[in-house]
Design a protein around this nucleic acid. Structure first.
Lengths: 148, 148
DNA sequence: GTGAATGCAAAGACTTTGCAGCGAT
DNA sequence: ATCGCTGCAAAGTCTTTGCATTCAC
């Protein structure tokens, strides 16, 4: 009843190994993954899944709002589990050097409150119907700092 | 002395019509533009500039920090003038439907202050060296609302 | 005049799609 | 036994690159 994703029998989708593996990978990672990274990890785990299947599964999960796609500027899309509930809300730390995307979820009441008010004000100002926001902090990750 | 971009003679870059036109387009737009949109607008203005030149110019301007690249999830990069000075800082309104990216610059002291504090806290928490942030508000633009 | 910039076409990188066979229900 | 799912390869986008020509300095 809790996390339905693509598993629900009423969804019309079949539960295949490829799909279970991919959602498993994304759920257990605090980093966003590219299609290629997912493909690689499945290979290394000796689960042969074609790259096309990875893309098709990602698209499917995206359509059903189970995951989200992120583009950070290196020309390759990254995927992460969606924010299904308010408590899933998170922000991102992007490394300018290696493009790694780290998620983090702890932020203040103050911030949530401010964002809410800002969204409201934007709706009035520009006529947009605001559905959410994304905050990306950019910087250099510890690993890349060490390399320099 | 003010806005140097690629114009400065000391930059080593030549001032060509294509470059002047492209930076002009980006400077005067409050929307981010794709390479193709830039190419189209130049054609319509009867300035024939090859798409490859557009890409090359954008890359050049990006390297010299005159513009920035934004990816919003439709697989096509968009470009906008960079935040050279603190007062250029702005946020984005992204339309989930047509992917248009609108910039806006008016935000509160409260927000700036909160972001500064958050950046500081993140540096301590995750060891990242934070260099900035991006805030994207997502929603449906007035035009797309009307179409629905 | 010289080397950078351009246009065109070819090549690349990432993603999607067509089709025959496999597999979940 | 269906009809969706998969793998492979071919086709599509968007972007970059090679090369001869043109142009800014």
């Amino acid at each position: 009843m809790a996390k339905e994703g693509l598993e629900g029998s009423e969804s019309g989708y079949r539960s295949t190994e490829a799909r279970r593996l991919i959602i498993g990978l994304l759920s257990s990672s605090d980093e966003s993954l590219t299609a290629d990274q997912i493909h690689d990890r499945l290979r290394k785990a000796h689960r042969k899944v074609g790259l096309a299947t990875v893309y098709r599964t990602l698209k499917l999960m995206r359509n059903s709002r189970a995951i989200e796609r992120i583009d950070v500027g290196d020309g390759t899309a990254r995927y992460e589990t969606a924010e299904l509930r308010p408590e899933d809300h998170h922000h991102h730390l992007i490394c300018r050097s290696c493009h790694r995307v780290r998620r983090y979820a702890q932020f203040s009441e103050e911030e949530l409150d401010l964002m809410k008010r800002t969204e409201h004000s934007l709706e009035g100002r520009f006529g947009y119907q605001i559905t959410g926001h994304r905050i990306y902090f950019e910087g250099i990750c510890p690993e890349c700092q060490a390399k320099q």
